[in-house]
């Protein structure tokens, strides 16, 4: 079983897609590098930290992007963001079965802060264009850098998210919160707390991700295909609809009403009826899903 966590961006794509089917757009040979990093004497990467292209998933044509956590934590700069936006706009034209985004990122690349912020905004709007065209967008989160910042918002604009337990999905990192409001607010070195708060299991229980899988390329592959199929089975809900957003609004309001006073994710797990909440972090993905699938919130 190959670990998704330990794989780099292209290794993940090879594990995800049908054998020998990945075809890269703007491969590293073209040396599309950031125009900003050099001025800061920071290293550049010939793909600016993201691989994009197309391939086949159980025979279906899919468009894919994989962020490389090994380069600046997968952060989004001007070129990196434009590659993602270009992929999404190309999907509008060529209409693949689905777009799969393998996100591993700290969010905006601070070395090119302003350009990165606008770039993430452009990705967000392009993603919603793709959904509006009836093409499902599925996000995969299982890299060691998690999915943070503006890209954490982008992830929740997709049709569905699949995570591993090791994946983290959030907005601000614990270090940022600790720096701003002190260690009593959020102890960034308390790894168990960090995982309870932003890890795949908590997101699955809250309903912010739709599938929780083991840390393997094969598990992510099957989950991405299942979620794309489910999206097509309910094709009217691939684009945003007023009814779906009104339901989401109520869902998110209920979460504040029920859990807004909770001090720790453990309180939330107990409140939804998990019998032995303290043991949840110990369970393997399969056993965890078996124990909680009926209790978790969301659809």
């Amino acid at each position: 079983m190959s670990s998704y966590l330990e794989a780099n961006a292209r290794e993940r794509l090879f594990a995800l897609l049908d054998a020998d089917s990945f075809y890269e757009f703007l491969p590293p040979e073209l040396r599309m590098v950031s125009p900003h990093l050099g001025q800061l004497d920071a290293p550049v990467s010939f793909d600016d930290g993201v691989a994009i292209g197309q391939g086949r998933l159980h025979g279906e044509c899919v468009f894919v992007a994989a962020q490389e956590g090994g380069f600046m934590g997968g952060a989004v700069g001007e070129v990196h963001g434009a590659k993602l936006t270009g992929l999404l706009l190309r999907a509008l034209r060529e209409r693949p079965y689905a777009v799969l985004l393998l996100l591993e990122t700290g969010g905006v690349r601070l070395h090119e802060a302003n350009a990165g912020l606008i770039a993430v905004s452009e990705v967000m709007r392009a993603l919603l264009e793709v959904r509006a065209a009836g093409i499902p967008v599925i996000v995969l989160v299982g890299g060691s850098n998690g999915c943070f910042g503006g890209m954490g918002i982008v992830a929740r604009c997709a049709n569905a998210i699949v995570m591993s337990e090791e994946g983290r999905l959030a907005m601000s990192g614990p270090e940022v919160i600790e720096t701003a409001n002190g260690v009593e607010e959020y102890d960034a070195r308390d790894r168990a707390l960090v995982w309870r708060t932003s890890g795949g299991k908590h997101r699955y229980l809250l309903g912010d991700c739709q599938m929780l899988v083991a840390d393997s390329g094969a598990a992510f592959r099957q989950a991405a295909f299942d979620l794309a199929q489910e999206s097509h089975a309910n094709a009217g809900n691939i684009p945003l609809t007023l009814a779906a957003l009104e339901a989401e609004q109520q869902f998110l309001q209920n979460r504040i009403d029920r859990f807004g006073a909770a001090a720790d994710p453990l309180d939330i797990w107990r409140a939804i009826g998990v019998a032995d909440a303290a043991q949840l972090p110990m369970l393997e993905a399969e056993a965890f899903v078996a124990a909680t699938a009926e209790l978790r919130l969301g659809v």
């Binding site: 601000s172 940022v176 708060t197 979460r255 720790d264």
Partner: peptide
């Protein structure tokens, strides 16, 4: 920048 907002999934609210 609060733990509570992260616990509740603030990225989902902003999305």
């Amino acid at each position: 920048l609060r733990h509570r907002d992260e616990m509740l999934g603030i990225n989902s609210y902003m999305a």
